[in-house]
Computed example of a mutant assay.
Amino acid sequence: MKNAQERQRLSKMMTKMLRHAPDEFGLRLDPADGSCQADALLNALMRLPSWAGVTMEDIAEVVRACEKQRFELRDGRIRARYGHSYERVAYEAAPPPAILYHGTNRKALAQIKQDGLRAMGRQYVHLSEGKSFAELAGRRRGELVMLRVDTAQAAQAGVTFYRAGNEVWLADHVPADVLNEDGP
Protein backbone atom coordinates (compact mmCIF):
# COMPACT_ATOMS: atom_id res chain seq x y z
CA MET A 1 0.00 0.00 0.00
CA LYS A 2 1.18 3.44 -0.73
CA ASN A 3 0.02 5.16 2.43
CA ALA A 4 -1.77 4.82 5.77
CA GLN A 5 -5.03 6.23 4.39
CA GLU A 6 -5.21 3.49 1.73
CA ARG A 7 -4.39 0.85 4.37
CA GLN A 8 -7.23 2.16 6.52
CA ARG A 9 -9.67 2.06 3.57
CA LEU A 10 -8.65 -1.54 2.82
CA SER A 11 -8.91 -2.47 6.51
CA LYS A 12 -12.47 -1.13 6.61
CA MET A 13 -13.39 -3.08 3.48
CA MET A 14 -11.85 -6.28 4.89
CA THR A 15 -13.78 -5.67 8.12
CA LYS A 16 -17.03 -5.45 6.20
CA MET A 17 -16.20 -8.59 4.21
CA LEU A 18 -14.94 -10.75 7.08
CA ARG A 19 -17.02 -9.50 10.03
CA HIS A 20 -20.29 -8.17 8.72
CA ALA A 21 -21.32 -9.15 5.18
CA PRO A 22 -19.31 -12.03 3.68
CA ASP A 23 -22.28 -13.27 1.63
CA GLU A 24 -22.52 -9.90 -0.09
CA PHE A 25 -19.06 -10.56 -1.56
CA GLY A 26 -19.46 -14.28 -2.26
CA LEU A 27 -17.26 -15.35 0.66
CA ARG A 28 -17.97 -18.54 2.58
CA LEU A 29 -16.48 -18.39 6.06
CA ASP A 30 -15.69 -21.49 8.07
CA PRO A 31 -18.24 -21.52 10.91
CA ALA A 32 -15.65 -22.94 13.30
CA ASP A 33 -13.30 -19.96 13.16
CA GLY A 34 -14.72 -17.45 10.68
CA SER A 35 -11.84 -17.88 8.24
CA CYS A 36 -11.74 -18.20 4.47
CA GLN A 37 -9.01 -18.81 1.92
CA ALA A 38 -6.92 -15.64 1.61
CA ASP A 39 -7.06 -16.06 -2.18
CA ALA A 40 -10.87 -15.99 -2.01
CA LEU A 41 -10.73 -12.66 -0.17
CA LEU A 42 -8.22 -11.28 -2.69
CA ASN A 43 -10.40 -12.38 -5.62
CA ALA A 44 -13.51 -10.86 -4.03
CA LEU A 45 -11.67 -7.58 -3.52
CA MET A 46 -10.33 -7.55 -7.07
CA ARG A 47 -13.88 -7.85 -8.42
CA LEU A 48 -14.63 -4.45 -6.88
CA PRO A 49 -13.64 -1.58 -9.21
CA SER A 50 -11.92 0.44 -6.48
CA TRP A 51 -9.81 -2.55 -5.43
CA ALA A 52 -8.92 -4.07 -8.84
CA GLY A 53 -5.19 -3.51 -8.24
CA VAL A 54 -5.02 -4.89 -4.70
CA THR A 55 -2.41 -7.59 -4.00
CA MET A 56 -1.92 -10.28 -1.39
CA GLU A 57 0.96 -8.20 -0.03
CA ASP A 58 -1.47 -5.28 0.48
CA ILE A 59 -3.74 -7.57 2.51
CA ALA A 60 -0.78 -8.89 4.53
CA GLU A 61 0.34 -5.31 5.20
CA VAL A 62 -3.11 -4.41 6.57
CA VAL A 63 -2.99 -7.47 8.83
CA ARG A 64 0.47 -6.50 10.13
CA ALA A 65 -0.26 -2.78 10.52
CA CYS A 66 -3.65 -3.05 12.23
CA GLU A 67 -3.12 -1.57 15.69
CA LYS A 68 -6.11 -3.45 17.11
CA GLN A 69 -4.93 -6.70 15.47
CA ARG A 70 -8.37 -7.33 13.99
CA PHE A 71 -7.17 -9.90 11.47
CA GLU A 72 -5.18 -13.11 11.42
CA LEU A 73 -3.47 -14.45 8.29
CA ARG A 74 -2.13 -17.99 8.68
CA ASP A 75 -1.59 -21.03 6.48
CA GLY A 76 -3.23 -19.40 3.47
CA ARG A 77 -6.36 -18.49 5.43
CA ILE A 78 -7.55 -15.15 6.77
CA ARG A 79 -10.09 -14.26 9.42
CA ALA A 80 -11.31 -11.40 11.54
CA ARG A 81 -10.39 -12.27 15.13
CA TYR A 82 -13.50 -10.70 16.70
CA GLY A 83 -16.35 -8.25 16.16
CA HIS A 84 -18.58 -10.32 13.92
CA SER A 85 -22.16 -9.16 13.48
CA TYR A 86 -23.39 -11.42 10.67
CA GLU A 87 -23.15 -14.79 12.37
CA ARG A 88 -21.88 -16.11 15.65
CA VAL A 89 -18.36 -17.47 15.38
CA ALA A 90 -17.52 -20.16 17.91
CA TYR A 91 -14.60 -19.65 20.29
CA GLU A 92 -13.26 -22.09 22.82
CA ALA A 93 -13.87 -21.20 26.46
CA ALA A 94 -10.68 -20.53 28.41
CA PRO A 95 -9.70 -19.30 31.88
CA PRO A 96 -8.95 -15.56 31.65
CA PRO A 97 -6.43 -13.49 33.57
CA ALA A 98 -7.64 -12.17 36.95
CA ILE A 99 -8.46 -8.74 35.51
CA LEU A 100 -9.73 -7.74 32.08
CA TYR A 101 -10.51 -4.24 30.82
CA HIS A 102 -13.28 -2.67 28.78
CA GLY A 103 -13.06 0.84 27.37
CA THR A 104 -16.27 2.78 26.95
CA ASN A 105 -17.41 6.38 27.00
CA ARG A 106 -18.84 8.49 29.81
CA LYS A 107 -22.30 8.69 28.14
CA ALA A 108 -22.70 4.89 28.23
CA LEU A 109 -21.61 4.48 31.86
CA ALA A 110 -25.03 4.91 33.54
CA GLN A 111 -26.58 2.20 31.36
CA ILE A 112 -23.62 -0.12 31.94
CA LYS A 113 -23.90 0.35 35.71
CA GLN A 114 -27.52 -0.73 35.42
CA ASP A 115 -27.34 -3.55 32.84
CA GLY A 116 -23.68 -4.56 32.80
CA LEU A 117 -21.79 -5.00 29.56
CA ARG A 118 -23.93 -6.29 26.71
CA ALA A 119 -22.90 -7.27 23.19
CA MET A 120 -25.19 -4.66 21.64
CA GLY A 121 -24.98 -5.15 17.83
CA ARG A 122 -22.11 -7.60 18.04
CA GLN A 123 -21.99 -11.24 18.98
CA TYR A 124 -19.90 -10.81 22.15
CA VAL A 125 -18.72 -8.23 24.66
CA HIS A 126 -15.07 -7.34 23.93
CA LEU A 127 -12.53 -7.25 26.75
CA SER A 128 -8.76 -6.76 26.82
CA GLU A 129 -5.88 -8.09 28.90
CA GLY A 130 -4.22 -4.70 28.84
CA LYS A 131 -5.50 -1.17 28.85
CA SER A 132 -4.15 -0.23 25.41
CA PHE A 133 -6.72 -2.15 23.33
CA ALA A 134 -9.52 -1.12 25.66
CA GLU A 135 -8.46 2.53 25.35
CA LEU A 136 -8.49 2.32 21.55
CA ALA A 137 -12.08 1.12 21.61
CA GLY A 138 -13.26 3.45 24.35
CA ARG A 139 -11.84 6.66 22.90
CA ARG A 140 -13.78 6.35 19.65
CA ARG A 141 -17.05 7.77 20.94
CA GLY A 142 -16.28 10.40 23.52
CA GLU A 143 -14.69 10.75 26.94
CA LEU A 144 -12.94 7.52 27.87
CA VAL A 145 -13.99 5.49 30.89
CA MET A 146 -11.94 2.40 31.65
CA LEU A 147 -13.74 -0.48 33.37
CA ARG A 148 -11.98 -3.30 35.22
CA VAL A 149 -13.60 -6.75 35.19
CA ASP A 150 -13.00 -9.07 38.15
CA THR A 151 -13.00 -12.31 36.19
CA ALA A 152 -13.13 -14.64 39.21
CA GLN A 153 -16.23 -12.88 40.49
CA ALA A 154 -17.68 -12.89 36.96
CA ALA A 155 -17.03 -16.63 36.59
CA GLN A 156 -18.83 -17.23 39.91
CA ALA A 157 -21.77 -15.32 38.44
CA GLY A 158 -21.79 -17.71 35.47
CA VAL A 159 -19.83 -15.71 32.88
CA THR A 160 -17.89 -17.79 30.36
CA PHE A 161 -14.82 -16.18 28.80
CA TYR A 162 -13.48 -16.93 25.32
CA ARG A 163 -9.98 -16.08 24.12
CA ALA A 164 -10.08 -14.39 20.70
CA GLY A 165 -6.30 -13.96 20.53
CA ASN A 166 -3.72 -11.21 21.05
CA GLU A 167 -5.02 -9.90 24.39
CA VAL A 168 -8.67 -9.89 23.28
CA TRP A 169 -11.25 -11.81 25.31
CA LEU A 170 -14.97 -12.21 24.69
CA ALA A 171 -18.02 -12.88 26.86
CA ASP A 172 -21.73 -13.04 26.20
CA HIS A 173 -22.56 -10.58 29.00
CA VAL A 174 -20.72 -9.15 31.99
CA PRO A 175 -22.92 -8.21 34.98
CA ALA A 176 -22.60 -4.75 36.47
CA ASP A 177 -21.60 -5.96 39.92
CA VAL A 178 -18.24 -7.35 38.66
CA LEU A 179 -17.25 -4.03 37.05
CA ASN A 180 -15.25 -1.23 38.62
CA GLU A 181 -14.07 2.04 37.15
CA ASP A 182 -10.33 2.03 36.74
CA GLY A 183 -8.77 5.28 37.86
CA PRO A 184 -6.37 7.39 35.79
Rank of each mutant, 00 (worst) to 15 (best):
12 K>M: 14
86 Y>R: 10
139 R>K: 15
118 R>G: 10
109 L>W: 08
104 T>S: 11
115 D>V: 03
134 A>Y: 06
109 L>Q: 05
24 E>M: 11
119 A>S: 14
89 V>M: 14
57 E>H: 12
34 G>W: 12
116 G>F: 12
22 P>M: 09
136 L>N: 08
116 G>L: 09
137 A>W: 14
113 K>R: 14
152 A>N: 11
176 A>M: 10
33 D>A: 07
131 K>P: 14
160 T>E: 12
118 R>M: 08
88 R>W: 02
181 E>I: 13
163 R>F: 13
125 V>W: 04
23 D>Q: 12
179 L>R: 01
63 V>G: 05
141 R>H: 13
139 R>E: 08
51 W>V: 02
66 C>R: 07
109 L>P: 04
144 L>H: 06
80 A>G: 15
161 F>T: 05
128 S>G: 14
3 N>Q: 03
107 K>I: 02
73 L>Y: 07
131 K>E: 15
116 G>H: 11
73 L>S: 05
3 N>A: 00
109 L>V: 02
124 Y>E: 00
92 E>G: 12
94 A>L: 07
162 Y>V: 01
15 T>K: 14
109 L>S: 03
74 R>W: 08
56 M>V: 01
104 T>P: 06
18 L>S: 10
134 A>T: 05
170 L>W: 11
82 Y>S: 06
162 Y>H: 12
73 L>T: 06
106 R>E: 13
77 R>D: 02
119 A>D: 04
59 I>T: 06
82 Y>I: 00
157 A>P: 02
157 A>T: 08
122 R>G: 14
10 L>W: 09
87 E>L: 10
165 G>D: 04
148 R>Q: 15
161 F>Y: 12
178 V>S: 05
135 E>K: 14
33 D>N: 13
34 G>D: 08
64 R>N: 02
176 A>C: 11
65 A>N: 07
109 L>H: 01
175 P>Y: 05
8 Q>N: 11
6 E>T: 10
144 L>P: 01
139 R>T: 13
140 R>M: 12
173 H>I: 01
59 I>R: 05
11 S>C: 09
86 Y>C: 07
98 A>P: 10
99 I>N: 03
97 P>F: 05
137 A>P: 01
56 M>I: 08
144 L>W: 01
61 E>S: 11
66 C>Q: 10
29 L>T: 03
96 P>E: 06
90 A>H: 13
29 L>A: 06
174 V>G: 12
7 R>W: 00
170 L>I: 07
165 G>N: 10
126 H>R: 10
142 G>R: 00
13 M>A: 12
36 C>I: 04
171 A>D: 11
182 D>V: 03
143 E>V: 06
66 C>H: 14
83 G>M: 05
15 T>Q: 15
65 A>K: 09
71 F>R: 09
116 G>R: 03
122 R>N: 13
23 D>M: 07
95 P>E: 14
139 R>N: 13
83 G>L: 04
113 K>I: 02
70 R>H: 12
101 Y>W: 15
182 D>R: 07
137 A>R: 06
82 Y>C: 00
79 R>E: 04
73 L>E: 09
